[in-house]
């Protein structure tokens, strides 16, 4: 693949277009091995209370911070205020301005509350954060997020953890035509072909967690996703053939036996 094909977010260049979450793994060791196999350079983390009584082994003991860019999320936040508070804490803990902003609407669907999302994004951009918002696959909301100064938009392919794939590729295409900032499909990927489809649509990247961590063999699936994202990107850049209803022969018609 062209080595100059970089993902650029807020002026920072990344070679991998796959971003992965660090939740739901069986162990920190498995997390580290899956991250390695995925080739990801950006990894998401959550911000939670330190357990005062448990041993203090932490995820970060297993992660080389020179190799990965941490993208703290606001998972579990249902209001703009909670999300903003979490981002400020994340910045203090990690000394980086990158945040994956999510403000959820309800527990059953984990769909974004876009009203609160826009409110939080506005505050965070003003405070100098590099905001990557998880949003509905809604081109209008994505445009508003871009206008507010977000560094990327991350529309869902399907509900978080559902593995249903890219349910509305046409909306994703319209989003791609609507905004100039990177479009990263976040949530919904179930298997490698889903990731490839996102990339073939022209998305700038894919973010996933459960599809890898929940697979029978997470490390093998991480490698599959690594390949799928690269394959999908390459196919997008190569330019696919148009779809046709009827056959077109691949072999020459001249010189056939008579």
């Amino acid at each position: 693949m062209a080595t100059n094909d970089k993902l650029v977010i807020a002026g920072r260049e990344f070679s991998s277009r796959l971003m992965v979450g660090t939740g739901k793994y069986a162990s920190f060791k498995e997390t580290a091995l899956a991250l390695e196999a995925s080739g990801a350079e950006i990894i998401t983390v959550a911000v939670r209370r330190v357990n005062l009584d448990r041993n203090k082994e932490s995820l970060l003991d297993y992660i080389d911070l020179k190799k990965y860019t941490l993208l703290p999320n606001t998972a579990g936040c249902y209001t703009a205020d909670d999300a903003v508070r979490t981002c400020r804490l994340a910045r203090e803990a990690g000394m980086s301005d990158f945040v994956k902003l999510e403000v959820l609407g309800n527990e059953k669907t984990l769909f974004p509350d876009n009203e609160e999302l826009l409110k939080a994004a506005k505050i965070l951009v003003k405070e100098g954060f590099t905001v990557l918002p998880y949003t509905s696959d809604d081109p209008i909301v994505c445009k508003k997020l871009e206008d507010l100064g977000c560094a990327a938009v991350m529309p869902l392919g399907a509900p978080i953890g559902s593995g249903l794939g890219i349910r509305n590729p046409y909306n994703i295409r319209i989003i791609l035509e609507t905004v100039k900032i990177p479009v990263i499909v976040d949530a919904g990927v179930g298997t490698a072909s889903d990731a490839a489809i996102a990339m073939e649509l022209g998305c700038d990247g894919v973010l996933m967690n459960t599809a890898i961590a929940g697979a029978k063999n997470p490390i093998a699936m991480a490698e599959a996703m690594n390949l799928a994202v690269r394959a999908g990107r390459l196919a997008y850049l190569a330019g696919r053939i148009p779809r046709k209803l009827y056959a077109t022969a691949s072999s020459p018609l001249e010189g056939l036996l008579e």
Binding site: K24, Y25, L60, A93
Partner: peptide, 10 residues
């Protein structure tokens, strides 16, 4: 006092 850190998450 609240003491927070990074944990695994998506």
């Amino acid at each position: 006092i609240e003491i927070l850190h990074f944990v695994g998450g998506g």
